[in-house]
Amino acid sequence: MIEILTTGLPNTVQDLGRPGYLALGVSRSGAMDKDALAIANLMLGNDPSAAGIEVAMHPFRLRALVDTAVAITGACCVASVGGRPCPPWWATIIRAGETVVLEAPRFGARSYIAFAGGLDLHPIMGSCATDVKSNFGGLAGRGLSRGDRLALNPAEYRLPSSGLGVALEERRGAADGFASAIELRVLPAAEFDAFTPASQAAFSGSDWSIANEANRMGYRLSGETLSLASPLELLSHGIVPGTVQVPPSGQPIIQLADANTCGGYPKIATVIEADLWRLAQAPIGARLRFICVSIEVATEALRSIHRWRHAFVAARKQMTGSRGQVDILQDSVTDAQRT
């Protein structure tokens, strides 16, 4: 059992989501930064899809009511567990009565806390993810409140005494990139060619900023006005997280985890799955830049994520207590296994 001490409503229970129900109008949901939650779980020996907490509003504090282990990933924030400083992307033991404290991120926007065994909640349509648009899943379909108590599944966990950390090659350089403009790789979508050449050029040639309306459903962007060469009336159609729609205002909207499953606005592009974590970690006001890529580049990016996830699982199995650090090099399984 854990108890929430300090939180905001944007903080929710999430797992890797509820794929497979789009045809019933049910969003994919799940962690906005799925790799961060998956790695947090893997560090504890959990299934990657175990339920944890997505912290989108800091500071956040919780108290463990039992001895257990936690892993904290995602945004880089000053964190402590039982008063001991906890580096980003670290797993450690926590004793009953001790607290986990996450301060505002220095980099990134969403932190993830996984627990040994995962949170014990009643799954709905195969998932414990909170769908904030439709108000179901997680804890009564709502964000976390002070005083909420959440049960943990029974679990055995083994961690080195100093804890266990992960460094993802892919994210090492990200902080520098985030300081200027966050690059998002996109594939052109159905109506790309229906936009004026000037708008097509502006889409990938200019910077966008994330407007105030940015949540788990989607982000509104502001920047140059994009226009269609001639008006289009589309019938409602299924959309996926990452879809960049352009409503009549000409200011794009990126649809995300809890988005409507159908839309009607013209779609200029789709952010590739491998880059959705960048959006999850982009705070309001952050600058974005779209880069059009080929199917081959998008495929390789996804393949690389799968490779380092496998590498991580393999490396954790070989883990010894001496150093407690697992380096994951995204481009090579064998490199990761060597460390």
Binding site: P19, G20, L22, A23, L235, S236, H237, G238, I239, V240, T261, C262, A298, T299, L302, R303, H306
Partner: peptide, 16 residues
């Protein structure tokens, strides 16, 4: 997944 829309169909697959 196969998601019928209005006179259209979204088909979701494993690209790997």
């Amino acid at each position: 997944e196969a998601v019928p829309g209005m006179n259209n169909l979204l088909v979701v697959f494993d690209p790997l």
